[in-house]
Nucleic acid binder design. Structure first.
Length: 818
RNA sequence: GCCGAAGUGGCGGAAUAGGUAGACGCGACAGUCUCAAAAACUGUUGGGGGGCGACUCCCGUGUCGGUUCGAUCCCGACCUUCGGCACCA
């Protein structure tokens, strides 16, 4: 009688033993190749839902596979623990964010242990603990000293009623404060930035990383490199000393078509250039744009608006005097905050010119253009017209000719602009790493000395639900002495964006308890860079870009000696529920715990890998999970049943063993290839097929004992990365030595894996008409002969002339006939 | 609007290199077991037509074209869905 499989008993038994034996404990080992396989660590927002498992279980299987292949695998786990949700929970539940976060971590760790991950828990890191954020602060200081961190004024959402800064998500429709419904304005306040733009050019280069191309494309688009020319327009305004207005354009070929110029409302020249008769209108407009949020203002849906300043600038290339407007479609933070408007060849300028009745001057003739009025901006290449000496030139050539002309006359210079902005890292929040800066009336901005780190987050700060930095009201924190002059000083009360914590955590795993620096350089040298990173694509232009920036900056600081954090990247898809992404706020989270309790972690792991290609994700639907459960029961039954069969020493016939060994080695080959490329669904399909085949072998009972043994051991070893518990249990029940997870992954014999007989497909004019089993060694001439001799084929060829035969080795013969 | 990915049975999906479309699983149907049900096991299962039958023919991978001996795969146009960006001059 074969005992029933008890998943819950077996799983907890092995989990305890693995933990007690420390089989997943990782050490540096120069004798083996290292493999650093990292899954993006989870945010500590509560329970792990099925989406987390979808990210972690297949990644764990892949890491286990690499272990079995002989790599020294670092596959660590930790928690991204600072941030807004914890603080919001603290406010709404009256519980401290630390308590709430640590409770969540305890629960998530328990869930991950139940998943059966091969994590080395000795290396766990938690970003909100001082032993971690001490080094986040240390890195900030390194950046500060290198000129990569600076303070500047930046516009933020400001609620005049609450007297506080609001995050973008706190601004509700029509630009109102979510709390008091007052109209939010934009206000410039001092904020800390990291100079990521210094690395814009290097970040564009994806040649050293093997990442999905769509992620590279998203990063390139985000960085948004544009080649153009910064051009000076002549300015002669009474009482204004500045004699030029600089604009940036990517279309110098259109410069003869400029009919007006536009400043961003925030441009510093606006106030000085506005003439008295336009002042009232301009001031009103500037004020109205401040009422609009960035999001609202940037929307292409809203109609363009603007006002005339009363001032004029002169286009140096043709001496034309054009009016100067202000409009909020011009952004202060891109280029020079001013544009030359060419309505004929730019759709935004075109719309604006139409609305305010400004002239539209064609300087690039569309094909077949007869001088008629344009119905829309013509933005494509064409022939130059109305452009003096450049007339008749193709516009693409004129681009360079005019750029040269501008440069040689000192009207401007070629430049490159990026869409990427510096990274604003200040958060008016409590639950984050304090920025280690002290303000002193005598010495100004003073960095906290390294030896005084960490700047501890005071546990007893009172948070007010205002959105304003709570640390501001914590006197014990704010009041300090200046590290330089020892006079009274005030601490910076903003905290760092949590994306800073996750920009270097992968380095900390190499030496998580090191206390002489953020990491032990020797350990980092051994483990880094990450060989395989896995996680969601939603981090394409945030975390993944920031981490690349950090590594490049740290390299230039001499801290590390590699260029990219993550050599390979794989993005798993998203599991959705009720057509929406799973999240607590949507109330559609699926908790894996009940599935684990009912069917076991192995089944849940395998099911998540089986539902489809890992990079596709999909709607959560548990209707197929019983299929996996059934398969596991069949494997269990099959392996134990096989133990009770008295297998013959010699197979009944050589053919039986030959086929069994062929199927075994073919499966090993297929599974190895699929695991390598994260094709978990087809890997499991192959293992199911193998199981079905072995069931037949077990009922025939005619294979030899050794061939059966080989097949069953292969099945368990191939299954071990996916189902670590059941495979371990069966491994021990068939009398093998502990642990299956310390066994080498099976290797296949190419001769045995190769097909001996193939199905030769015979087509007539491309349609399948017959299939013939032939030896794989068949020659081209033989195959053609076999094809033509089939009676079915002959009947199709009756009365036709055979024109030619197409032969695809090992596959088919196509008879082309007329 | 721009950039990117994807459309295959009732469902999730397979087809690694332009060469057997629908592997594997779910569901459904029929059967075995059972007093019965569940579970388990066995068989059938893309659509349509013909044959008592072993079988056989036609259609079929979002739509319409094209290239090719041959297209789920390559090319062009279009439709739909999803993801990203969204006045970046």
């Amino acid at each position: 009688m074969i005992p029933k499989y008890s998943a819950s008993e077996t799983e907890s038994k092995w989990q305890r033993k693995w933990a007690a034996d420390g089989i997943y404990h990782v050490r540096e080992d120069e004798s083996r190749p290292k493999w650093y396989e990292l899954t993006m660590f989870p945010y500590t927002s509560g329970d792990l839902h099925i989406g987390h498992w979808y990210a972690m279980a297949p990644a764990d299987a892949h890491a286990r596979f690499k272990r079995m292949q002989g790599y020294n695998v670092l596959h660590p786990m930790g928690f991204d623990a600072f941030g807004l949700p914890a603080e919001n929970a603290a406010i709404s539940r009256g519980i401290h964010p630390y308590t709430w976060t640590m409770q969540n971590i305890a629960n998530m760790r328990r869930q991950l242990e139940r998943m059966g991950g091969c994590y080395d828990w000795n290396r766990e890191i938690i970003t909100c603990l001082p032993e971690y954020y001490r080094w986040t602060q240390w890195l900030f200081l390194k950046f500060y000293h290198a000129g990569l961190a600076y303070r500047d004024k930046a516009p933020v959402n400001w609620c005049p009623n609450c007297q506080t800064v609001l995050a973008n998500e706190q601004v509700i429709s029509e630009g109102r404060c979510e709390r008091c419904n007052a109209t939010v304005t934009r206000r410039a306040i001092e904020q800390w930035f990291l100079r990521i733009t210094r690395y814009a050019e290097e970040l564009l280069d994806s040649s050293r990383i093997e990442w999905p191309e769509r992620i590279n494309v998203m990063q390139r688009n985000w960085i948004g490199r544009s080649e153009g020319v910064e051009i000076s327009f002549e300015l002669d305004h009474p009482g204004v000393e500045t004699k030029e207005l600089r604009v940036f354009t990517t279309r110098p070929d259109t410069i003869f078509g400029v009919t007006f110029a536009v400043l961003a409302p925030e441009h510093p020249l606006v106030e000085r250039l506005t003439t008295p008769d336009h002042r009232a209108e301009v001031e009103e407009y500037v004020a109205s744009t401040q009422h609009r949020t960035e999001i609202d203002r940037l929307s292409t849906e809203t109609e363009k608006t603007g006002v005339f300043t009363g001032a004029y600038v002169t286009n140096r290339v043709n001496g034309e005097r054009v009016p100067l407007w202000i409009a909020d479609y011009v952004l202060p933070s891109y280029g020079t905050g001013a544009v030359m408007a060419v309505p004929a060849h730019d759709s935004r300028d075109f719309d604006f010119a139409r609305k305010y009745d400004l002239p539209i001057k064609v300087v690039i003739a569309p094909p077949g253009w007869q001088g008629e009025e344009l119905q829309e901006a013509y933005v494509d290449p064409g022939t130059m017209v109305n452009s003096a000496q450049f007339d008749g030139m193709p516009s693409k050539e004129a681009w360079h000719a005019i750029a040269d002309f501008i440069e040689s006359n000192d009207y401007g210079t070629r430049t490159v602009s990026y869409r990427l902005r510096d990274w604003l890292i200040s958060r008016q929040r409590y639950w984050g790493a304090p920025i280690p800066i002290v303000y002193c009336d005598q010495c100004g901005t003073v960095p906290v000395p390294e030896k005084d780190l960490p700047v501890l987050l005071p546990p007893d700060a009172e948070f007010r639900p205002t959105g304003e930095s709570p640390l501001k009201y914590c006197d014990a924190f704010v009041n300090t002495s200046c590290p330089r002059c020892h006079g009274p000083g005030r601490r910076e009360t903003d905290t760092m964006d949590t994306f800073i914590c996750s920009s270097w955590y992968f380095l900390r795993y190499a030496s998580p308890h090191y206390d002489q620096g953020p990491f032990d350089p020797q350990k980092v040298k051994y483990w880094l860079p990450v060989d395989q990173y896995t996680g969601g694509a939603e981090h394409a232009v945030m975390h993944l870009l920031y981490a690349r920036f950090f590594v490049k900056a740290m390299r230039d600081l001499g801290l590390i000696d590699f260029d990219e954090p993550f050599t390979r990247l794989f993005n798993q898809g998203v599991i959705i529920a009720q057509r929406q992404k799973m999240s607590k706020s949507r109330g559609n989270v699926i908790n894996p715990d009940e599935y684990v309790a009912e069917m076991g972690a192995d089944v849940v792991r395998a099911y998540l890998m089986f539902i489809g290609p890992w990079d596709q994700g999909g709607e959560w639907d548990d209707s197929g999970i019983h299929g996996v459960k059934r398969w596991f029961n069949r494997v269990w039954h099959l392996v134990l049943q096989g133990q009770e069969i008295n297998w013959p020493k010699q197979a009944d016939s050589q053919e039986v063993d030959k086929e069994l060994r062929h199927m075994t080695h073919r499966t090993i080959k297929k599974v190895t290839g699929d695991l390598e490329r994260f094709h978990f669904n087809t890997m499991l399909a192959a293992l199911m097929e193998f199981t079905n085949y072995l069931s037949n072998v077990a009922s025939e009972k005619s294979a030899s004992a050794s061939a059966w043994r080989e097949a069953v051991e292969a099945l368990l070893l191939l299954l071990a990365p996916t189902a670590p518990h059941m495979s371990e249990e069966l491994w021990s029940r068939i009398g093998n030595t502990y642990s299956i997870h310390q066994q080498p992954f099976p290797a296949w014999d190419e001769t045995l894996a190769a097909e001996e007989r193939i199905t030769l497909v015979v087509q007539v004019n491309g349609k399948v008409r017959d299939k013939v089993a032939v030896p794989a060694s068949i020659t081209e001439a033989e195959a053609k002969e076999v094809a033509l001799s089939q009676t079915k084929v002959k009947s199709y060829l009756e009365g036709r002339e055979v024109l030619k035969l197409i032969y695809v080795p090992q596959k088919l013969v196509n008879v082309v006939a007329r």
